[in-house]
């Protein structure tokens, strides 16, 4: 499946239902194409099929944690921007930054933190 129209594709990787729903509802309304998955394995499968402009990845997940997911995605589609999410201070966040995450947001976050990041991406795309 390739990108339809000029919609920006956003990947959300989080085992929490409410988080996936929130991202989906929020960003879809703003005109983005949102794919939300529960874990790293599913995320990697989607990344193979679709070109995502950005992926929001939770650091703590079962099966594959956020950093492992990040690294695998980077191998497949290195241009994918990665934003890490966490719910308390921990060492994995530092590791994620080192592995190339562009930034990190901390739960509970304000929705404008997410929308600001999206706007920046749109601007970058328009500049090109």
């Amino acid at each position: 499946m390739k990108n339809k129209s000029k919609k920006i594709c956003v990947l959300v990787v989080d085992d929490e239902d409410v988080m996936r729903n929130l991202f989906t509802d929020l960003l879809t309304e703003r005109g983005y194409e949102v794919i939300a998955v529960k874990n790293g394995l599913e995320a990697v499968e989607k990344v193979k099929e679709i070109n995502f402009a950005i992926a929001f990845i939770d650091v703590h997940m079962p099966l594959m944690n956020g950093v492992e997911t990040l690294m695998t995605i980077k191998k497949i589609k290195p241009q994918t921007r990665i934003v890490m999410m966490d719910s308390f201070p921990n060492a994995l966040i530092e590791e994620a930054r080192r592995e190339g995450a562009i930034t990190c947001i901390h739960k509970p976050f304000e929705i404008n933190e997410v929308t600001d990041i999206m706007e920046e991406i749109v601007e970058q795309k328009e500049r090109i």
């Binding site: 988080m19 719910s87 739960k107 509970p108 976050f109 929705i111």
Partner: peptide
Amino acid sequence: GSAVAHELNNPIGGILGYAQFILQK
């Protein structure tokens, strides 16, 4: 603390996010 933070911050994240989203809408 850290276990609680994780447990609580996700649902709180949902509450905050949706509350703000609703207000915006």
